[in-house]
């Protein structure tokens, strides 16, 4: 029940992101979350989308190199200490967070959303669920 994140290689130059979002816009792919990791020459765009199959197909056709990475999506109560509690669970379970990013909005307005990239997705999900933290699956993510 992990979430599929699409990671895409883009050059670090003017217009590169615009080109990418253009492909997604033309094909009516809806973005749920986005994060960017960059070096001086290139970057990796990380996307959560409503339709993974369509997005990867149109990206491939447009010549983008990409990969699919399983990530953990979590709904966090939008109150002080919300994130801290989630990280405490992961720390206690000795799960290393390689990177994470947040996004707001959506229909469950009393929650914030975080995406976590960890080595062992299953272990992370189990640890979070045991502590009654809401872990999202692909469909829920799409519905957010």
């Amino acid at each position: 029940m992990s979430i599929k994140q699409i990671s895409i290689f883009v050059e670090n130059k003017p217009g590169a992101l615009y080109g990418l979002t253009g492909v997604l816009a033309q094909n009516k792919v809806d973005l749920r979350a986005l994060s960017l990791a960059e070096t001086s020459e290139f970057g990796i765009v990380r996307l959560i989308v409503n339709d993974v199959y369509k997005a990867t197909t149109v990206l491939k056709d447009a010549g983008y190199v990409h990969s699919i990475t399983p990530v953990v999506g979590v709904a966090i109560p939008d109150v002080p200490g919300g994130l801290n509690r989630v990280l405490q669970v992961l720390a206690n379970a000795k799960i290393n967070v390689e990177y994470m990013y947040a996004f707001l909005g959506g229909r469950l307005s009393d929650s914030a959303y975080m995406i976590f990239r960890v080595q062992d997705v299953e272990a992370a999900q189990k640890a979070l669920a045991q502590q009654k933290i809401q872990v999202l699956d692909q469909d829920q993510m799409t519905g957010v």
């Binding site: 990671s7 290689f9 990791a37 190199v65 990409h66």
Partner: peptide, 15 residues
């Protein structure tokens, strides 16, 4: 040129 074989989500690995 980046290829699908070489690409990974892990920036550290690419580096």
């Amino acid at each position: 040129e980046m290829t699908p074989e070489m690409f990974t989500d892990n920036l550290g690995e690419i580096d």
